Simulated assay, not measured.
Amino acid sequence: MAPHTLILAGTTEARELATALDAVGIRVTTSLAGRVGTPRALPGELRVGGFGGAGGLAVWMREHHVTALLDATHPFAHRISENAVEAARRTGIPLIALRRPGWAPGPGDRWHSVRTLDEAAALLPSLGRRVFLTTGRLGLAAFVPVGDSGPDPLRFLVRSVELPDPPTPRHCQVILDRGPFTLDGERRLLREHRIDVLVTKDSGGPATAAKLTAARELGLPVVVVRRPEPPAGVTTVPDVDSVLALLSPAATDTCP
Rank of each mutant, 00 (worst) to 15 (best):
P3W: 11
L6A: 05
G10Y: 12
T12D: 13
T12W: 10
R15V: 15
L17I: 00
L21R: 06
D22P: 02
A23E: 15
A23I: 10
R27V: 14
S31R: 10
S31A: 09
A33H: 07
G37A: 15
T38P: 06
P43Y: 13
G44I: 04
L46D: 01
V48G: 09
F51V: 02
F51G: 00
G52R: 01
G53M: 01
V59D: 00
E63L: 13
H64E: 12
H65V: 10
L69C: 11
T73A: 15
H78C: 11
N83Q: 13
E86P: 04
R90M: 12
R90D: 09
I93G: 03
L98K: 09
P101E: 00
W103Y: 11
H112E: 12
T116Y: 01
L117H: 11
A120P: 12
A120N: 04
L124R: 04
L124W: 03
P125D: 10
F132C: 04
G139N: 02
A141K: 02
F143M: 01
F143Y: 08
G147N: 08
S149D: 14
L154K: 02
L157G: 05
R159W: 02
V161G: 08
P164H: 06
T168K: 11
P169A: 08
H171G: 08
C172I: 14
C172Q: 07
I175A: 10
L176S: 11
D177R: 13
P180M: 06
G185M: 09
R188M: 08
E192L: 05
V197Q: 05
V197T: 11
D202N: 14
T208Y: 00
V224F: 08
P228C: 05
V234L: 02
T236F: 11
C255Y: 01
